[in-house]
Design a protein around this nucleic acid. Structure first.
Lengths: 338, 338
DNA sequence: ATAGGTTGTCGAAGCGCTTCGACAACACTT
DNA sequence: AAGTGTTGTCGAAGCGCTTCGACAACCTAT
């Protein structure tokens, strides 16, 4: 293993000079710098991470806590994780992967040991137990998701309330008067994951403003669960012509079921999905959808975190504005007159 | 920040004693140990990761390189990553997340800097450029996937050749004589990702042994691509009654298309999928499938890696035996006589 | 020519931990 | 009673790096 001292000797300078060449924290003459860089290359030197962390009191590592459960949005989580990792690298940081399993203890461990300089938390619940810890430390952090109380916290998320509103608006504008919402699995609501409730909030308040009737039903993924849910919905509100789906794994089953019942999409019923772009495009009907901007969220989170680490950047809540893309799953409501 | 020295002072012992209490590398009297542990708890001490890494020359971190692309098996990757992270924790290791983006440089960087003690590589290509680096270092590593040359390497993977064979066997036994294989996206084959080719190998050789005709077609995910592929297949081999699908995102489109053409599953055609359990269960028809044991692979990989780090464990290739679960998507071939 | 600035380099201290050798203190043997 | 182990604890060195203060060497401006 090559050390700083060996590089210094090889280049005929002192260790501190090499260090300053590396960090750029003091001016170094061009000739010296070139000579040192040459030696570094020749010897294949890599600074030792541990020594660096010890001496400088920073690890250049960002911790990312991902949810352990896989009952929702797996591709989204994955995409966020990848975006976080690649963005972090562009800032010179590596990413430590923590699962939610350890819960608050993980926060304590990472903060206490100096393993990471900062953390990003995903799958934040409305009243998350990790939050007090984050507030109580000077370690910067960013949440992906929105808890109930965002004071002293930096959060990045899609504006799910606006998303809900947007979906209702679109359907209402097309003349739909009875809208059903296929929600996430019941467990997601019970856990008080903010995004599900915020979406619902947006859906409901907009529906009321526009005088549209709304029916919300949680739904496990899969064909069977969807069949049951759909039957119940059509039983209660036979006139339902608009659907908003917020559960990836219910999308395709819903389409199949509607097809099976002879209800044409978009002629008889319209479907709006809240899902990743890819799902919307690959479905058996190209879906009108509000995309979940996973990459953007991951990138934003890291950029904010790095800003904080650099002393720039303040606590704030960033809500990404939703965008609805019209594809082939929505159309005018079948005329009420007919 | 609380240091070892402070704990030592608080407990009235020397720093080295505290260290030995922590590591258990020398015997310590019960009374002393209890006193030290008490102090640790009272002061809320956490060992500094950097200092530890520097002094002991190990970081207690395992690097995990995940593919950047998301053109296949995203949930599988995610599940593996989570399994790796949680299993690593049970051994006292943390996981550093690297994306394939940096390629071989990432291996150099991590190895050179002592950031991680060992690495796990996913998405290994048959002739992966990272392999020479791994062979040339004494840093332990485990591959998830199988390259062409496995000498001096430890690999964990599903036995995809046996998987292919198993699928053909099952269909052949049910009387199917014309089988079509819906493969991964063409890019996956061009990249020479081992598992796709090994599956194909297993499918083909077993088909030949059993005197069954086999047609293989790569297929991008999604409805449109599947429609095209299916049309071509049925054009070439109208008598096809058995399908093997190795592309998650083609499963549901295939089922929908078959339904649309009035081909009943499993009465007219049988479908076997190679996919995660969840996909098989949630599909619109409960699918006969060979599960991809993501968790098991992740767990295995870590266990082997830790064994290597402990000086136990040798280079070896572990192929997990496939298991075919019969569900409702396969049945006897429509009698050739009819 | 001399005081006052810059600029580029060096030496040394120290980050918090592990680990080695040393050595009391005590228990056994013979 | 002396020798021989064991057991539990300590002091000190050192891991590879960053960073601070010091200080030559060179520039100006007077």
């Amino acid at each position: 293993m090559v050390t700083l001292a060996e590089v210094a000797q090889h280049a005929g300078v002192s260790a501190s000079t090499v260090s300053y060449v590396l960090s750029g924290k003091r001016s170094i003459s061009v000739t010296t710098r070139l000579r040192v860089e040459q030696s570094i290359r020749e010897l294949g030197y890599h600074p030792n991470a541990g020594a660096r962390a010890l001496a400088s009191n920073k690890s250049n590592i960002i911790a990312l806590m991902i949810p352990l459960r896989t009952d929702m949005y797996v591709p989204v989580m994955m995409e966020i994780a990848i975006a976080v990792a690649t963005t972090a690298r562009t800032h010179g940081y590596d990413v430590l992967l923590l699962t939610g399993e350890e819960g608050p203890d993980a926060v304590r461990r990472v903060t206490g040991s100096g393993l990471a300089d900062a953390m990003i938390l995903m799958d934040v619940e409305l009243d998350d137990e990790r939050l007090p810890l984050l507030r109580g430390t000077d370690q910067p952090s960013v949440l992906i998701g929105l808890p109930a109380d965002t004071s002293e916290l930096t959060c990045v998320d899609l504006d799910f309330k606006a998303t809900g509103a947007l979906c209702v608006e679109h359907l209402a504008m097309l003349g739909h008067r009875d809208i059903a919402v296929i929600g996430e699995a019941p467990a997601v609501y019970e856990r008080h994951t903010g995004f599900a409730e915020r979406t619902l909030d947006g859906l409901r308040s907009r529906a009321q403003e526009l005088g549209v009737r709304l029916l919300h039903r949680p739904c496990e993924g899969g064909y069977d669960a969807m069949a049951l849910t759909l039957a119940r919905i059509l039983d209660e509100r036979p006139g339902t012509t608009g659907f908003v789906v917020q559960n990836e794994s219910a999308v395709e089953p819903l389409l199949a079921l509607l097809r099976g019942q002879g209800r044409a999409v978009p002629e008889d019923v319209s479907v709006v999905a809240i899902c990743p772009e890819q799902v919307a495009v690959q479905a058996s009907v190209r879906l009108t959808s509000v995309a979940i901007p996973a990459q953007e969220m991951g990138r934003h989170a890291v950029d904010h975190l790095v800003a904080k680490l650099d002393g720039r950047g303040k606590d704030e809540v960033v809500l990404i504005a939703p965008e609805l893309t019209v594809r082939s799953s929505t159309g005018p409501a079948p005329s009420a007159a007919s």
